[in-house]
Write a protein that binds this DNA or RNA. Structure first.
Lengths: 140, 140
DNA sequence: CTTCATGCAAATAATTTGCAGTAAG
DNA sequence: CTTACTGCAAATTATTTGCATGAAG
């Protein structure tokens, strides 16, 4: 994914310099909070305002370009919309890693919710723990 | 669960009127945001302050008495600590319902993370969709 | 051109903190 | 008694909004 302009236009959003910057930062790092995005983006475009990030995150989430990933004990992060997947979340360093969904599990969720007349739209699986890198650091 | 006093003392927290109120409200409704708790609790104890709720939620989460449930597009809710389970979250009305975990899925998560040297501590599964009651309301 | 987006500053909402007064154990 | 907890008000942080200017299509 590099063509953020097309992505934006397909969602009826003008392809501004600012929006493309925001998307590219999210894309590059994978999972970013509003503050993370701001910190990165002003390196390239120092006058880009926090308000613009807030406004655009809200818009892009509405349009489905970007997805919110709420996390225990931290501010939400945002990622580019993509195929359903799970998250490994390190409770030490905050790192978030994508992990492919497991069909077996998905099938179970599907049937579970159907029993209950619940119309399932979106699955969110976050696995919290300590990443390999933080484990070795703690050991030392 | 009714003995909030014991629960608190076991966690080295004084069993104050305020804390027992907060716990009983969470217990009664299942999943409550800070504001929800405040709205309920002042019915019984009108002078109980929001600050007290914030301070205690933080404390009780640290002590493991209460658990944060972060939710897409809304403020986090809190529930009493209990056996691992999943959540059905209605994106219309915000209702959250507990649903028992599925052993098969858990086993998969366990092995998936082990491969990766990730030390898994806590699983969080949120299934977003529309609850039966909101579906019938929309139909009408 | 026309419409929508940006940036700033100001407004609002959310959360945290300090501290004097209370209550729990 | 002693220590920890509460409530209030003030401080901070987070998020939203209004509006004049500027850029996209």
């Amino acid at each position: 994914m590099t063509d953020y302009a097309t992505l934006l236009k397909e969602s009826d959003l003008k392809a501004t310099f600012q929006r493309m910057n925001i998307l590219s930062v999210i894309d590059e790092y994978g999972h970013m909070s509003v503050d993370d995005i701001y910190a990165e983006v002003i390196k390239v475009h120092p006058s880009l305002s926090l308000a613009t990030i807030y406004k655009n995150i809200i818009l892009m989430v509405e349009k489905g370009v970007v997805v919110e990933v709420p996390i225990v004990g931290r501010k939400s992060k945002y990622e580019l919309a993509k195929a359903d997947h799970m998250h490994l979340v390190c409770t030490e360093c905050g790192m978030v890693e994508d992990k492919q969904c497991v069909d077996e599990a998905d099938a179970v969720f599907e049937s579970l919710t159907q029993e209950e007349q619940f119309k399932l739209n979106k699955r969110q699986v976050n696995l919290y723990g300590i990443c390999a890198s933080c484990q070795t650091q703690k050991a030392s």
